[in-house]
Design a protein around this nucleic acid. Structure first.
Lengths: 216, 216
DNA sequence: ATGCTTGGATAGTGACACTCTCCAAGGGAA
DNA sequence: TTCCCTTGGAGAGTGTCACTATCCAAGCAT
């Protein structure tokens, strides 16, 4: 199929597809003539993944590029490719400078990993983006006057463990490793808003249950 | 304290504080003279909350203004104020147009509420922003080739229920209703990145457990 | 041949949080 | 009192970033 058809089938404007090609989020099509390129189903799936990352995940284009590079890096084995892809996912502008709250946050995070027995996290965690995200988030919490303790965060971490089991179950429904890697990335990103909105609905429900009629 | 001191204590540049004042995210200080205003601890706390919403929550300023209005709306009782504040939280640009996937997503969402027995959600849900978020997220999932069924989403919803219990437990540690409302808003927003990063760490751990050594 | 389409490059657009610049009016020290 | 520095207010500007509108040259189809 050619660019116009790719655009029609995916619902993405041609101008935007051109932009993605330019930014190397999408591999170039196979050149048929000097003025025509042919795209396949792989392009269509990739395009959908890009939309998931950029539109739903609000990920900077540069970050999406890295994630996609990991997805198609054949030099990694399956687990590593899964890991590397999800690995590259968040790219919070960097730890910025080492505020005093950050040190305390890092301590809490380390203690948390130990308490949960997440050895993998302990081995490679301290340099993983997700670990950095966690430290930043805890630091922000403290800076804004909501101090964190390991006991406070533990329930959250246990719940996150359940989430991961559910996620990996979904991923394992896909057959080929390539599909699994794609699904892992897509679902990690696409289920985030699902999770967050369900959490807010559940909060409303729980608050209704607890405070209903309490007119203080 | 005056503007300069408020800036110093909060770490927010004076220009930004002026901007927040102009945008009515921060109530004006008490005018001492024609050229001087006095700010109190309430301003400091409010400023922190604003930073939580705008910087961590990446919320548009206009949305933050609505949330803050609900926080300080004395005409509502406690539960309503909690609800209204969290209510106004997300403001995804609107459902846009009614794509075909949206209808299916709405069906799934309704069925989900029923299955969970979330009556509050069923009563007021369909117009709540969080409900709209959920529908959009499910529609995006379907549009990108990952169809959703109630059975797929149910585990997520149950986990969200656990999260809400943990959240409300944290909120109830605060004594006064005013603090509780503030905490509910702040924690809802500030714990989101904590949750998402923990989920990613847990995914890495779980993937390590399942695929370790699998070199396909 | 010729008009329409294709893909590529360049320069804009719009949204949005923030920030710079300027200004009038005090207020403290000499 | 007088002078300079600070304060708070208002408008316009900046940077970022995803996206888009405009051109352009080179075919392909009629």
């Amino acid at each position: 199929m050619r660019l116009a058809e790719l655009s029609e089938r995916s619902g993405v404007p041609t101008a935007t597809i051109k932009y993605y090609l330019r930014e190397r989020l999408l591999p170039p099509g196979e050149r048929i003539t000097a003025t025509t390129a042919e795209y396949g189903d792989a392009h269509l799936r990739r395009l959908r993944l890009v939309r998931a990352l950029v539109q739903v995940g609000k990920m900077p284009v540069a970050t999406a590029r890295e994630v996609l590079a990991a997805v198609e890096d054949d030099s990694l084995d399956h687990h590593m490719r899964l890991g590397a892809a999800v690995w590259a996912l968040p790219h919070p502008p960097g730890p910025a400078q080492e505020a005093p709250e950050t040190t305390a946050a890092r301590r809490t995070a380390d203690e948390l990993m130990r308490r949960l027995g997440w050895q993998y996290g302990l081995e490679v965690g301290p340099v993983s983006p997700a670990y950095g995200m966690l430290v930043n988030a805890l630091a922000a919490l403290a800076r804004l006057g909501y101090p964190h303790t390991v006991e406070n965060v533990l329930p959250y971490a246990r719940i996150a463990g359940q989430l991961a089991v559910a996620d990996l179950d979904l991923v394992e429904e896909y057959e080929t490793p390539a599909e699994q890697v794609e699904a892992a990335v897509a679902l990690t990103v696409l289920l985030e808003p699902v999770l967050l909105s369900l959490r807010r609905l559940a909060e409303a429900e729980e608050s209704h249950r607890r405070f209903r009629g309490d007119s203080s």
